Amino acid sequence: MSPSQVLRRFYEAELAYLTAGGPGRASFAGIASLLDPQVVMHQAAGLPYGGDWVGPDGVERFFAAMNDTWEYLEVREPRFLEDGDTLVVLCDLVTRSRARGVDMHAPMVQVIQVRDGLIVDFRPFYWDTAAVAAACAHHDET
């Protein structure tokens, strides 16, 4: 499979996982099958789910943290740019925070590395991490 085919399969598995109930309710196996054992999901430190999430178990914990943070999260109009094993995905992120009920709609870029048919690295770049963090903060944190 090409890197873009791997990522499209990942997105399909992610949608199936979330549609089936997500963290604690659905099987993560479909997603895990597309991840390298040493995969790393990098998130900006200033976000409520910031840091590096390592391995398929780490990515599964990341999904749980995202589920705790966002009431819904949708990636719209993804465009794939592929260069060897590197994918750049240009998209719009549409979300609603659980803490405040704040709706957000902003551009996002993801840089993803694929090796031997498995995803090895995710690096999302948010348009405004401060706005994302503020939307997710509990009222007593601001």
Rank of each mutant, 00 (worst) to 15 (best):
141 E>V: 11
69 T>V: 11
91 C>A: 15
7 L>Q: 13
121 D>C: 05
100 R>P: 00
124 P>Y: 09
129 T>F: 07
115 R>N: 10
73 L>M: 12
88 V>G: 00
47 L>A: 07
80 F>S: 02
5 Q>K: 13
40 V>F: 08
58 G>H: 03
113 Q>L: 12
63 F>H: 14
113 Q>S: 06
48 P>V: 12
55 G>E: 04
65 A>C: 08
64 A>T: 12
61 R>P: 01
105 H>Y: 09
10 F>K: 06
117 G>N: 07
20 A>M: 10
105 H>M: 08
56 P>H: 06
60 E>R: 14
102 V>E: 09
32 A>H: 05
27 S>Q: 05
2 S>I: 13
25 R>V: 15
129 T>W: 05
84 G>E: 07
66 M>V: 13
134 A>S: 10
25 R>T: 14
111 V>Y: 03
71 E>H: 10
104 M>N: 06
104 M>I: 02
3 P>T: 10
121 D>F: 09
51 G>C: 10
126 Y>R: 04
130 A>G: 08
132 V>F: 08
100 R>D: 00
126 Y>F: 15
47 L>K: 06
23 P>Y: 11
13 A>S: 09
62 F>N: 02
18 L>P: 00
141 E>C: 06
138 H>R: 15
17 Y>C: 06
116 D>R: 11
73 L>N: 05
85 D>S: 15
20 A>Q: 09
20 A>S: 14
39 V>Q: 05
31 I>F: 04
16 A>R: 14
59 V>A: 06
95 T>H: 02
9 R>Y: 01
22 G>S: 06
134 A>G: 01
16 A>N: 10
81 L>V: 15
134 A>E: 11
67 N>K: 11
65 A>G: 07
13 A>W: 02
140 D>L: 12
109 V>D: 00
78 P>Q: 08
87 L>Y: 01
33 S>P: 01
18 L>Q: 12
42 H>W: 14
81 L>E: 10
98 R>T: 07
63 F>W: 14
67 N>P: 01
96 R>P: 00
60 E>C: 08
123 R>M: 10
19 T>F: 01
